[in-house]
């Protein structure tokens, strides 16, 4: 991919192209190669415990899963279909109802067979307080498993550049 690939545009296409994330209102704040930030505006149905005023842990899982997957998509030399192998989430403290959530993820390692991503989620009212951390592993498949038009589907425009990806 070229240096000027508009990853924010591509990531926005990615979250808006999935019915599930479109329904939740997830949006992309920032995106560069292998480094993505997303924001989930508050919606009342994200509550998981009305009596204590807490956000459902599953909402956090959904955001971090989407974010980590997207970070892999824009973290390799060119976008590949990389199925999620596993995702681990550590919940540091509960999220409170009524506040948007923000999460950032970076791709931390890439081998010929696995890409590893780490993510952090917080709420806008207390950015210094981490709500949850995630680590995800993604499988790298043979090139023929990624459709020819995948890059164009994701990025929305044809890009022509040498494959600059380096394998660890």
């Amino acid at each position: 991919m070229t240096q000027d690939t508009d990853w924010r545009y591509a990531m926005t296409r990615y979250v808006k192209g999935m019915p599930h994330t479109r329904a939740t209102g997830l949006e992309v704040i920032k995106a560069s190669k292998g480094d993505v930030t997303m924001r989930l505006p508050w919606q009342p149905w994200f509550a998981g415990d009305l009596s204590r005023g807490l956000v459902h842990g599953g909402v956090i899982t959904m955001v971090l899963d989407t974010l980590c997957t997207g970070t892999v998509l824009c973290g390799l030399g060119r976008p590949e279909i990389c199925p999620t192998l596993d995702l681990r989430i550590d919940h540091y403290r509960p999220a409170r109802v009524g506040h948007a959530m923000v999460a950032n993820a970076i791709i931390v390692n890439v081998t010929g067979s696995i890409a590893t991503v780490e993510g952090t989620l917080w709420q806008v009212n207390a950015p210094e307080k981490t709500i949850a951390r995630a680590v995800g592993s993604f499988a790298r498949l043979p090139p023929e498993m990624t459709p020819h038009n995948f890059e164009r589907l994701l990025c929305g425009r044809p890009t022509h550049s040498p494959n600059t990806e380096s394998h660890v």
């Binding site: 999935m18 599930h20 994330t21 459902h56 842990g57 599953g58 909402v59 899982t61 959904m62 955001v63 971090l64 899963d65 989407t66 997957t69 999620t84 995702l87």
Partner: peptide
Amino acid sequence: IHGGAMGAFMET
């Protein structure tokens, strides 16, 4: 199915 929805379902 969205992996996050699957995770949320299993967590619930």
